[in-house]
């Protein structure tokens, strides 16, 4: 598929280019962007395609991260095994939440996902014996060991991340052309029409929830070893979920490159703000938040749409792009 191949090619180029970059700050920024993009892409599988905005995706980041790290540090379970368990736990949680929220849509669905994320945070803070409470868990680094996702160089995490992002993007591209992708599109427009067409709505919803959770979790378990620190305020906080939703929207939920562009945009604001204003916090969320307002009011299809318009130089809006059309 055209845009998928183009994106993967671009990511390969970035991976190659990273060997020419020695500045650890830049490599760090690239790594953060990559993992945010993974989460944005996985979130889009659930919310962008179905139209139901989830504001609680951080549960699929925090829970697998905690499962993997606690199993590793307390019970010495090898990270790769623990990661699989963490991902499985995220999928189970997704099945549960997906089934529970079947009848909800719009703001009610958003509020339910927000609440789920808040409950997760409370539980993490409360069971501090296991989770370390608000102080989190520092991850002890002994020696480079790829089976335990311990790399001594940022670039290794970046490369793993880029590979994962490729996989996730290919998965999402394939999904949109698949049977399920069609069903989701029908459900998004009208559940009544979907039912009349014989689509098992409940099953579809739960399955995509699980898929989205699995991909999000995969990114989370790697990222947390890059961070070397499990911070509940960040991983389980309400803000991260909202940020992911917002930058994916800014990038453009209808595009395969949308969440990636959105993540890059968001990280760019951070870099610029740090450079110009140093330690004054708030610039990144401020610009992100207001960008969403601007995008929703002017070009709801996002930055990708704006980019396409520029490329077409004439300024005419792109025709409705249906990803499925390219699969003949």
């Amino acid at each position: 598929m055209r845009s998928c191949a183009a994106i993967c090619a671009m990511l390969a180029v970035v991976a190659a280019a990273s060997f020419l970059i020695q500045d650890s700050y830049i490599l760090g920024v690239m790594t953060v962007t990559t993992f945010l993009a993974i989460w944005g892409q996985s979130w889009n599988l659930l919310s962008g395609l179905s139209g139901n905005v989830s504001l609680g995706h951080s549960v699929f980041i925090a829970m697998p991260a905690y499962v993997t790290v606690v199993l590793f540090q307390t019970w010495h379970v090898p990270v790769l095994a623990g990661a699989l368990l963490g991902i499985a736990a995220a999928v189970a949680l997704a099945a549960f939440i997906g089934a529970a929220t079947l009848r909800l849509s719009g703001p009610y669905f958003a509020l339910a996902t927000l609440s789920a994320s808040a409950v997760m945070l409370s539980l993490i803070l409360h069971f501090s014996d296991i989770t370390g409470g608000p102080n989190g868990i520092p991850i002890a680094f002994t020696e480079a060991d790829w089976t335990n996702l311990e790399f001594d160089h940022t670039r290794s995490y970046l490369l793993v991340g880029l590979g994962l992002l490729c996989v996730v993007t290919i998965f999402v591209a394939g999904f949109r052309r698949s049977r399920l992708g069609f069903y989701v599109a029908v459900i998004k427009s009208s559940e009544a029409v979907a039912r009349a067409a014989g689509i098992r709505i409940a099953l579809v919803k739960v399955v995509i929830y699980c898929m989205s959770a699995a991909l999000t979790a995969a990114g989370a378990v790697v990222y947390v070893f890059y961070l070397r620190f499990l911070d509940p305020g960040f991983l389980a906080g309400l803000t991260l979920s909202v940020e992911i939703a917002l930058f994916a929207v800014v990038g453009g939920t209808g595009f395969l490159a949308g969440p990636i562009l959105g993540a890059a945009f968001y990280e760019l604001i951070d870099v610029v703000a740090n450079a110009r204003f140093g330690d004054v916090g708030g610039w990144d969320v401020m610009v992100l938040g207001f960008s969403v307002v601007v995008i929703v009011m002017t070009e709801p299809r996002g930055l990708c749409e704006l980019a396409l318009r520029l490329v077409r130089a004439g300024g005419a809006p792109a025709r409705m792009r249906s990803v499925q059309r390219e699969a003949k």
């Binding site: 939703a245 969320v285 401020m286 610009v287 938040g289 969403v292 307002v293």
Partner: peptide, 18 residues
């Protein structure tokens, strides 16, 4: 509509911080 008000919410928090 959800995205608009959420964007405004987060943007407002950032603005206050700045």
């Amino acid at each position: 509509q959800i995205l608009l008000t959420i964007g405004l919410s987060i943007g407002g928090i950032g603005l206050a911080q700045v």
